[in-house]
Simulated assay, not measured.
Amino acid sequence: MTEWTALHPIIDGGDPDNVVRLVQGMDATTRKALAEPLRAYEKQLRTAAFVSKRFWGPRLCALTVAGAALLPTASSVAVWIARNGLREDETGTDVIDLVVEVLRDRQVTWLPDLVDRLALRLPSDRLDPDMQQLVTSLATHTGIAPLATDGLVYAWIATGEAHTSRSSLARRLFEVDGIGVLLEPGGWPGKLAGDPALDRVMLLEGCLFRLRRGGRAADLNGFLLLHKALAPTTDEVAMLAGDYEALLSNSHAPTAAMARHELLLASQAGLSR
């Protein structure tokens, strides 16, 4: 196969830029024909008798770009990218922009599905900045917001970056473990409370829900700070009185104290009217 004869040495030489050049404008039939030898080549490398990180390193990024350009479905591309990675460890060179370039060149209809599949692969307890950047870049290209996955919510809060999907991410803020501890260092209580794009009642209800769930004190303290920044009015407390009352017996003493204080203020305001 002429095309594979040309592509194989480029991947084997660890040259992702030239992979892009070779696949640019390639028709769907040719891509399909190249997918199988590409898979066979990767399998051969991974099952070789001697495989070291030094042996793999230069080829991984080129493999990632080639898979993004040739594999037939969103699911196969997502698995391929996650397996081969987006950055060469020794040089620190990433291929995020190249992956986006070859995917855009394909003009396939399944890019939004790929964005969601990649977002689902983001870890929910640590940052994966390369995968996050790829998800964000592809979402910008498609114009469709990705799923508000645990990993995407974590990355949003951990990095402190502005996000066009923050309304949907904020709704999931209270369901992802380990987020509370990140709120104060990132200045998030004030940013969330002062964001006009976010529903204030949703944030209040979310705080009360998360505090009622319980958990580590460090996590709960972050949501107490968010509640303080929201500074609920007596009318809002009265509207959510049942939720506050449910916190009165909370084992986290600061949470119970906050609930007593807010209910007392609301009661006093009601008596004075």
Rank of each mutant, 00 (worst) to 15 (best):
V201L: 13
D195C: 14
V201Q: 15
W188H: 14
L169F: 05
G214S: 09
L192R: 11
R212G: 08
T159P: 08
G151W: 06
K191P: 08
L147A: 10
P189N: 15
S165P: 07
L152S: 08
E175R: 06
P189V: 07
A170T: 07
L211N: 00
L182N: 02
Y154E: 02
G187M: 14
D150G: 10
L169N: 10
A162L: 10
S167R: 06
I179C: 03
L173C: 06
L204Y: 02
D177T: 07
M202D: 15
E205Y: 00
G194L: 14
R166W: 03
A155F: 10
L173K: 03
D199L: 12
L147C: 08
L182P: 03
G214D: 05
T149P: 03
G214F: 04
S165Q: 12
T149N: 12
E175D: 11
P189W: 12
V176I: 04
A193D: 14
L198M: 13
I179Y: 02
P196A: 11
G190L: 15
A155K: 04
E161W: 12
G160T: 07
D199T: 08
S168Y: 07
L203R: 01
L203F: 13
G190I: 15
E184F: 10
K191Q: 15
R171N: 09
I157R: 01
L147Q: 07
L147M: 07
F209R: 06
R213S: 09
E161K: 11
A193E: 14
G180C: 07
